[in-house]
Simulated scan of single mutants.
Amino acid sequence: MKNRGEDMTIREIIIKYSQELEKISDTPRLDVELFLQKALGDVDRIYIHLNLNKELTKEQYNEFLGYINDRINGRPVAYIVGNREFMGLDFFVKEGVLIPRPDTETLVEEIIELCKNKNEEINIVDIGTGSGAITVSLAKYIENSKVISLDISDIPLEVGKINAVSNGVDDKIEFIKSDVFSGIKDRVDKFDIIVSNPPYIPRKDIETLHTQVKDYEPYNALEGGEDGLDFYRQITEESVEYLNQGGILAYEVGHDQAEDVSKIMKYHGYDKIYTKKDIQGIDRVVIGFKL
């Protein structure tokens, strides 16, 4: 193997740095290929696979090495490359917003399924904009939807707007700075669906999270109080005032929280409560209907 990094071929770089990332990443080769795509000018993965014998310039190699060092130090891949795929859509992400996760697709898919035979306009509130993954996906895939996206922090609202524009649904979404429902408390109209993936990690468990989560992702998007259920209690109690009769309250929940969240919803009068498992077989979604 050549000594000077900038003379290494794409194939040699993939082999060498995939091995280096094996200890810290579940997808070392994918990480390396994503960093190469970015260093080579945001090319696609097909380009990488068709140009395995191509050598990097010194500038390209140094840029690539910067990404590798960031990853070794624990920075999440999505923050390094600046995007993450969710529901077949591309989302811009940066530090200050929660990175979209495949588990959350279960929640979005279930809401889409519940709406598929409804022809009238569907008014949705998403509590906790984050990157806009839930908000934008629902606006994109539910044709007759209007979505209000609420977040207490400025960065998620900024990022959410960017992703709404890039995915062509900014005309269907209203972004509002709000502590839970505070930003819409004067609205007269009620809503058909309230959805949330709230912070649900118990306070004591935050320090046990992987470095790339606890040290980089926003704390206020993770911590859900002493038992992780604070936001479920608040949102459920207040949601009754904002939902139409027969309206839907839909949550993503932590791996062991479905039963507790179902009880909270039942206590506040929700009916026909059910759970939905994610791809790993974990009860990830809880749905209830307002009587």
Results as ranks from 00 to 15, higher is better:
M1C: 09
I10R: 03
I13Q: 02
E20W: 09
D26Q: 12
T27E: 15
T27S: 15
D42H: 15
N51Q: 09
N53E: 14
K58L: 13
E59W: 01
Y61E: 07
G74K: 05
V77Y: 01
A78V: 05
A78R: 05
Y79G: 11
Y79L: 06
L89S: 03
L89Q: 02
F91V: 01
K94C: 14
E95M: 12
G96W: 13
I99W: 03
I99M: 03
P100S: 09
R101K: 12
T106D: 08
T106S: 15
L107Q: 09
I112F: 06
L114K: 13
C115K: 07
K116L: 10
E121H: 01
I122E: 01
G132I: 05
V136M: 03
A139C: 04
Y141E: 12
I142P: 02
I142K: 10
V147N: 00
D151Q: 02
S153M: 07
L157D: 00
E158Q: 14
E158K: 14
E174F: 00
I176R: 01
S178N: 01
F181P: 04
S182I: 11
R187Y: 15
V188D: 13
V188G: 09
V188W: 03
K190T: 10
K190M: 04
P202M: 13
K204S: 12
I206A: 06
T208C: 04
L209G: 07
H210S: 14
Y216P: 00
Y219E: 14
N220E: 13
Y232E: 06
R233S: 05
V253I: 06
H255T: 11
Q257M: 07
V261Y: 03
S262N: 03
I264E: 02
I273A: 01
Q280A: 14
G281D: 11
G281C: 12
V285K: 02
F289K: 14
